[in-house]
């Protein structure tokens, strides 16, 4: 076998050392650092991008939160305004109603007073008419001469009796 022919050993060892030495030098000094740099740059870039994305997400979360807060506040404000308006309207209604009721009561009282006055007056007139009529009847039919006072007393008593 040519592998065991020592005549080629020196040359093969020599060229092995030379070629492998060159390869090692070029790999260690040029190629590998460059690849390492590229790989590192890439992983750094990816990490950076992820970080940036995270920051942006946090920011958008904050914005959404602020928006929700503002919305909730606006809702609360509107509710308060509605409640205030409702209370105001209720107050106004109650005041107007009271005012109206008062006026009605006043008018009623006035009317009742007037009715009472009219009734009293009419009762007096009726009494007077009844007294006069009773006096006239007694004089003309019975022929009795009665004093006007006696007639009015009798009529008053009768009225009291019927009223009772």
């Amino acid at each position: 076998m040519p592998q065991f022919d020592p005549s080629s050993f020196a040359s093969q060892i020599f060229w092995l050392i030379v070629s492998f030495g060159v390869l090692y030098y070029l790999m260690a000094r040029v190629a590998l650092p460059r690849i390492a740099e590229v790989l590192e740059e890439r992983s750094e870039r990816i990490a950076n991008d992820l970080e940036k994305a995270q920051a942006l997400r946090k920011e958008s979360d904050a914005v959404i939160e602020a928006y929700e807060e503002a919305l909730a506040k606006a809702r609360a404000d509107a509710g308060a305004v509605i409640a205030a308006t409702k209370a105001e309207l209720a107050d106004l209604t109650a005041a107007r109603e009271k005012d109206f009721a008062d006026k009605v009561a006043l008018k009623t009282a006035e009317s009742e007073a007037r009715i009472a006055a009219v009734r009293a007056e009419m009762t007096e007139q009726v009494k007077a008419i009844a007294t006069a009529t009773a006096g006239d009847i007694t004089r003309q039919i019975a022929g009795l001469d009665v004093a006007n006072d006696a007639v009015s007393t009798a009529v008053a008593e009768r009225v009291k009796e019927t009223a009772a």
């Binding site: 005549s7 080629s8 020196a10 040359s11 093969q12 020599f14 060229w15 092995l16 070629s19 492998f20 060159v22 390869l23 070029l26």
Partner: peptide, 15 residues
């Protein structure tokens, strides 16, 4: 004998 041989050539090619 340090001749540049076919063996050395293929080492060079590998490098």
């Amino acid at each position: 004998d340090l001749s540049y041989t076919n063996s050395a050539l293929f080492m060079t090619l590998a490098v």
